[in-house]
Write a protein that binds this DNA or RNA. Sequence first.
DNA 1: CTCAACGCTTGCAATTTGCAAGTCTTGAAC
DNA 2: GTTCAAGACTTGCAAATTGCAAGCGTTGAG
Lengths: 121, 121
Amino acid sequence: MSRDVSTEKRRSECPIAGTLDIVGDKWTLLVLRDLLDGKTRFSEFERSPEQITTNILSDRLRRLEVHGLVVRRQGSGRRFEYHLEPKGEALRDAILALAAWGNAHVADTWVPPANYLQRPD
Amino acid sequence: MSRDVSTEKRRSECPIAGTLDIVGDKWTLLVLRDLLDGKTRFSEFERSPEQITTNILSDRLRRLEVHGLVVRRQGSGRRFEYHLEPKGEALRDAILALAAWGNAHVADTWVPPANYLQRPD
DNA sequence: CTCAACGCTTGCAATTTGCAAGTCTTGAAC
DNA sequence: GTTCAAGACTTGCAAATTGCAAGCGTTGAG
């Protein structure tokens, strides 16, 4: 679906641009949100309210894996499980900051429970 | 170029999705970065290293204005100046978090000076 | 053994992005 | 007082990305 991830060009050496070159599209950060929320299976991501389509979901999971933010493991039976690596975990603060902005500035957003996406300690 | 901003549909009531519906594309956050960095003119954004094209830049500035993150003012002569509103300013923390992730996890990103994009006090 | 659910892939349409060129104002230089 | 260049865009069309619907190969339960 999208071209070889390893040939992708960076737009600049700016750290913000570099980050967006990896996660700056319409869907990737929402998949990461679900992973931070503890979801691990393809069908769980698919069931989120935004209704990502399967081709995009599968492409985004592959990219996240290639970039090392996610690992794909065998679950029970022949099902797969996707888990965050430290590199993906590390986006938690950025995602929480986006959530905070949404609650403050976008109308009719649901206010998540106090511990939503919070680092389990 | 893009269709009427006021008819755009939200994907869900999630605050993260709501935020991304406004700023979650390839370019918007980079324009915001430049605004936080004090740039105000069309040609200044155009000169950033990522080389945004003029049609996209003009579209993104219009969207940011419609959503109230930016105001467009008459500068000297008949030039325009774009300035952040509080709603746009409020994305600073999220953008700094993305920059921090980039510096930590993306190879060859330039490390910005300590006060880069920092809230002037 | 059958059948439904899971985890995808494929093909094609619609939308968005990218590129190049062109337009309309000033404001400065000659 | 006329050129000319810079700034701020718009337009048209090609290329890339996204969205939709359907299809396919494994399980695992009944």
